Computed example of a mutant assay.
Amino acid sequence: MTNAPTQRTLEFTPLTGTGLQTSELQFGTWRFGRVNETGETEIDESRAHALLDAYADAGGRYIDTADVYGGGSCERWIGDWLAERDRERYAIASKIYWQIRDGDPNSRGTNRKNVRDRIDALLDRLDTDYVDVLYIHRWDDQTDARELMKTLDGLVESGRVHYLGASTHRPNAWKVARANEIARANGWEPFTVLQPRYNLVDREIEGDYLAFARQQGLAVCPWSPLGQGFLTGKYDRDADVPADSKVAASRRFRESYLTPENFDVHEELDAVAAAVDATPAQVALAWLCHRDGVTAPIVGARTVEQLHENLAAASIDLSPAQVDRLTAAKAGPYDGL
């Protein structure tokens, strides 16, 4: 039986490139109001507020959301929670991109009409005058980069947004670089925060993407740090996935995560976890915190107990040899990086 490390108060770390300080572990809220495949709401408002309380009690001050989470309920619940607190003590990040109205293609993407409409709506739900970071949730190849950056700069100039970020599913450093060149050439606000998928088994950003972020001095705040739950140890190499499991119906999850190569990585993770007397999830998060170029991973949780477990990862000090062992467990796209 593993004794989880004692959770300490979260510390602040620079949100590279912005002048802001972020909690060393950011809190992701994508499950707030989410209705799963069985029609159940994964996290209702009462539990959402309990999780936010637990995060704040642990010293957490950086909350990550998006305007589509829970169909907008997530932002409303965060806004209600913030109403009882000092807004200035918290950094709030939200995102825009996904289509929100059936039959209206202009309600998707980062065209000027959609961006201006969405920022007003999300600020209203959050009951705040501004967000600290506004991400584009995905890259929109239908919108010209010049139009995008000019529109986003207008939001910064108006005071409704402080900093700009790009949340990505696949490495696209060249698109961010091009957009930032356009912004700087025109005296507009550039992207300063990146939010890619990154964890022990999803290594696609290693190489050019991380090198670009380091060279440009951009913050990197990874999402899916536990590989959609794979790195928590809940799956067994030799056991069949239960027929009623959510992942049993997800071919993409099985093919992406339940692979021999990834289970090999998990064996290394388990070994390091045993050595430091922690859970696999905690060590997977600690590994990210030790990676050069990573600013602050985004952690989520279904329960307060899970959140406490995840936040305790900040207390784990892996040795250089342990970090190297985990890194070498699965090669990234570029050797030596």
Rank of each mutant, 00 (worst) to 15 (best):
Thr2Arg: 06
Thr6Gln: 10
Leu10Phe: 06
Glu11Asn: 05
Phe12Thr: 04
Thr16His: 02
Thr18Trp: 07
Gly19Met: 07
Leu20Asp: 08
Thr22Gly: 02
Gln26His: 05
Phe32Arg: 03
Gly33Asp: 01
Arg34Leu: 06
Ser46Val: 15
Ala50Pro: 01
Ala54Pro: 02
Tyr55Gln: 09
Tyr55Leu: 10
Gly59Cys: 08
Gly59Trp: 07
Asp67Glu: 15
Tyr69Leu: 10
Gly70Phe: 07
Cys74Phe: 01
Trp77Pro: 01
Gly79Asp: 15
Glu84Cys: 08
Asp86Gln: 12
Glu88Met: 03
Tyr90Ala: 13
Gln99Ala: 15
Arg101Lys: 15
Gly103His: 14
Ser107Lys: 13
Arg108Phe: 12
Asn111Cys: 12
Arg112Met: 03
Lys113Ile: 07
Arg116Gln: 09
Asp117Tyr: 08
Leu123Tyr: 06
Arg125Cys: 08
Val131Ser: 02
Arg138Ser: 12
Asp140Trp: 02
Thr143Pro: 11
Ala145Gly: 02
Arg146Asn: 12
Arg146Phe: 13
Ser158Met: 09
Ser158Gln: 13
Gly159Ala: 05
Ser167Glu: 11
Arg170Ile: 12
Ala173Lys: 06
Lys175Pro: 06
Lys175Asp: 15
Ala177Gln: 14
Arg178Phe: 13
Asn180Gly: 08
Thr192Glu: 12
Pro196Trp: 12
Arg203Gly: 00
Glu204Cys: 00
Gly207Thr: 10
Pro222Tyr: 12
Gly233Gln: 00
Tyr235Asn: 06
Ala239Asn: 09
Pro242Tyr: 03
Asp244Glu: 14
Ala248Glu: 03
Arg251Met: 09
Arg251Cys: 04
Phe253Gln: 05
Asn262Ile: 09
Val265Lys: 03
His266Leu: 14
His266Ser: 13
Glu268Asn: 07
Asp277Gly: 04
Asp277Leu: 02
Gln282Asn: 06
Ala284Ser: 07
Trp287Ala: 01
Thr295Pro: 07
Pro297Thr: 11
Gln306Leu: 05
Ala313Asn: 04
Ala314Trp: 04
Ile316Val: 11
Ile316Tyr: 09
Leu318Pro: 09
Ala321Met: 08
Leu326His: 05
Ala328Val: 08
Ala328Lys: 14
Pro333Phe: 12
Asp335Phe: 00
